[in-house]
Design a protein around this nucleic acid. Structure first.
Lengths: 195, 195
DNA sequence: CGTCTATTTGAATGTACTCAAAAGCGGTGG
DNA sequence: CCACCGCTTTTGAGTACATTCAAATAGACG
């Protein structure tokens, strides 16, 4: 059952009584996002937290030159949202779409607030998730400041081994902050060095 | 009284009863950090959240070439810690030191956990702070991916107007990810363009 | 006032980008 | 099953943004 994934994710951080689990599940709405389909559009207000069950989503912006820059990937067992927009309920800057057909659970902002009131433990759950995410952005920021493109690529491979061979290379380039052409050349050079 | 600053910061996010405020204050320990003094050393376990009352702290790493890279500044009314180390209680990668004589309040990890149990509202308080911080790192990551050095400098000036004329330029360079020499040249060029 | 650190300047260099074109790959329809 | 189409990846030449290194100047602190 799909609910296993989210319940396990929750129970790793907080303890819930059976009736609390049941209530939580009533707030989650299954949904399918087709490959390439836009789930959140820049300028929209983000009204849901999205939990990925299968497939993969990506959050990205488009800059003034029309280039895409990927902020994050959401493989299974991850939450994704435009945090700025979700928190402030102002129009956001992110697009979120699917790299492949993706099954998700939606938790609306309103229901999330209800959840905090009815089961305060969820404040803790989302605090812990947010802390974990923050730590990973601290690391990423320091990587952007101190590592070369090649080192950032290697760090990406370590952090997301499951994505390396499943998503297009240009998305990895966009995440680590180089052009697809340059990533291609780096990979060639790295192979030549090994031989 | 110094306590005003932290109490106001808290009351902007959650409501506390007078006795709860009083209890909270008993967990905070005033401390002074002298200019250039190291407050947290890489390799140490971070055992406190630190709230800045006056002055300014910085969190940074030193890369394999001995270069410093600044993750964050903590002017008055901000919390700072090595989040990775604080959360995991593993040795961290950050140094934290003072750019000028700085007065802070220390909240130990153990006391913070007590606080969560005694006043669950603080789960909410720190969740909200962490969310806000996460949003700013999202923005910074996207800036690193999509903006030129000059645009990142301008964005920094917008985000931290109070720091531009108070801290050394080389620290700004280290934060936005350029060499001090290059920041100096950018500023010269920006002035010449205006004239 | 002297010393130490920060900032500025310039020349040479390097890393990563742009643009253009070719090659590879996957899916779709004839 | 093959041919074609669109998209991704590769390759190369030329370029730009930012760095490195070295030295001079300016500024801050004791």
């Amino acid at each position: 059952m799909y609910n296993d994934l989210i319940l396990k994710n929750v129970s790793n951080r907080i303890h819930l009584e059976p009736d609390e689990e049941a209530y939580f599940l009533t707030l989650l709405h299954p949904f399918t996002i087709r490959r390439k389909q836009l789930h959140l559009h820049r300028g929209e207000v983000c009204r849901h937290s999205t939990f990925v069950l299968s497939g993969c989503l990506r959050g990205y912006t488009i800059d003034s030159n029309g280039l895409e820059h990927i902020l994050n990937f959401a493989p299974p067992d991850w939450w994704i949202a435009d945090m700025y927009s979700l928190v402030t309920q102002q129009p956001g800057y992110l697009n979120i779409d699917a790299l492949e057909d993706t099954q998700v659970l939606l938790l609306s902002k309103a229901d999330q607030e209800k959840l905090y009131i009815r089961i305060p433990q969820f404040e803790r759950y989302f605090r812990i998730l947010t802390e974990k995410s923050l730590v990973s952005y601290h690391r990423r920021t320091l990587h952007n400041l101190s590592l070369s493109a090649q080192e950032r690529y290697l760090a990406f491979c370590q952090s997301y081994p499951s994505l390396i061979n499943t998503i297009a290379q240009k998305y990895i380039a966009s995440y680590i902050g180089v052009t697809p052409e340059f990533l291609s050349k780096m990979r060639r050079d790295m192979l030549n060095q090994t031989r």
